[in-house]
Computed example of a mutant assay.
Amino acid sequence: MRVDNQYIVFNEFGTPEDVLRVEQRPVTPPGQGEVLVRMIARPINPSDLIPIRGAYSHRISLPCIPGYEGVGIVEDVGMDVAPELIGKRVLPLRGEGTWQQFVKASASWAVVIPDDVTDDQAAQLYINPVTAWLICRNILSLRPGAVLVVNASGSALGRILAQLCAFLGIRLIAVTRNDHHTKELLKLGAESVINTGETPLKQAVMELTGGLGADAAVDMIGGSPGTELACCVRTDGMFVTVGLLSDVPLDWAEIRRSTNASATMFHLRQWNQTVSAQVWQDTFRELISLIQAKKLALQPPGPRFELQKASAAVRAAEASGRNLGKYFLM
């Protein structure tokens, strides 16, 4: 019996609610080494929407199915894949876009989800948690007691970094533009919070570090806020940029003039290109163990939309910001 796969696709770059389309095609069996996954839940992330608008048009082929994250149930397996995977909940990552009913992915990269991790938690386990974990453990390699300063700390990534810093014994200085997230960040593990709407950033960092500066900094904003953040790092420290929320590049010339700290960019995509399947699985296993131990909490679920209503879901998610929790396509 023929089974159709309903999916969301964009055939041109533009505003998501204008260019997203609902289409369908027959489901085809998984190939050798693949799993066929019936999707349960997919979060709507800013990283899902940026490619639709054309920011990465140089490396995206059209038509394209969006969606980097999500969780589902293995319905079928291809040759050389253990049949015991059928019926398991997995993250079908690094394969097709997740904004469709059925996704095919390499079995070696599919992450099996334990029963005590919810669908909402599992669906969010990739982009922000892995980025935060790699920055803390691999890129910065900070020891307990080290001082890390992070801007845009009210973001999903910022809140995860606060929790990981608490777990790893890193002293976090969280930077925000207002006091909306101050209590939450302190509760999550930040040692202090700087509201740049009231206090000059560098002055505050120097006061909190006894004039030494931070051991490291993570920038998500770019532009002048990111450039200013880099200047808060001590001479032999490290500055990492992971995003451009301001859509304005950093002033690298000013950073070189103002600090001798090491500066680098981190892109999860580049790590994906070099990591082994074993390290990939181990990384998720560590994050899952933190969720199970209640050391790491992800965004609470917000409104849920049916897959075919993706355009309306995106419009609602962008209008509400983070006020109503994480939006999901079900």
Rank of each mutant, 00 (worst) to 15 (best):
I173T: 00
L172E: 05
K183L: 03
E318S: 02
T209Q: 11
R59N: 11
P300F: 07
S106C: 12
L91K: 08
S153M: 00
T15V: 14
T176W: 01
E17N: 08
G237E: 15
R21K: 12
P43T: 04
R21H: 12
A319T: 13
G226T: 05
A230S: 14
R322P: 01
A313N: 14
G97E: 13
I139S: 05
K294A: 03
T131C: 05
I40C: 11
D119R: 09
L268R: 06
V81Q: 11
A105N: 11
I50E: 07
A317E: 10
P200Y: 11
R89A: 10
P16D: 08
I194N: 00
V77C: 06
G145A: 13
N272L: 12
D236V: 14
I65R: 11
F102S: 07
T176V: 00
D215T: 02
Q270G: 06
M79H: 10
A263W: 08
A204N: 01
R256W: 08
N138A: 15
S57G: 05
V248P: 01
M79W: 10
S155N: 01
T274F: 15
K202Y: 06
G237S: 12
T176N: 02
V147M: 07
L168R: 00
R269H: 12
Q6H: 15
R137I: 14
V218K: 00
A122D: 06
T28M: 10
N5Q: 13
Y126F: 13
H181C: 04
C165A: 03
L296P: 00
N272C: 09
I291L: 04
K104P: 02
R315V: 10
V77I: 07
I170A: 01
P30N: 05
E254C: 07
C231G: 11
I86T: 05
R304C: 13
C231H: 10
A214D: 08
K309W: 14
H180G: 04
L62R: 13
P29A: 09
A146D: 04
T259S: 10
L201A: 06
Q121M: 08
G33I: 11
D236I: 13
T182W: 02
A41Y: 12
T28V: 14
K295I: 00
L208S: 09
I8N: 14
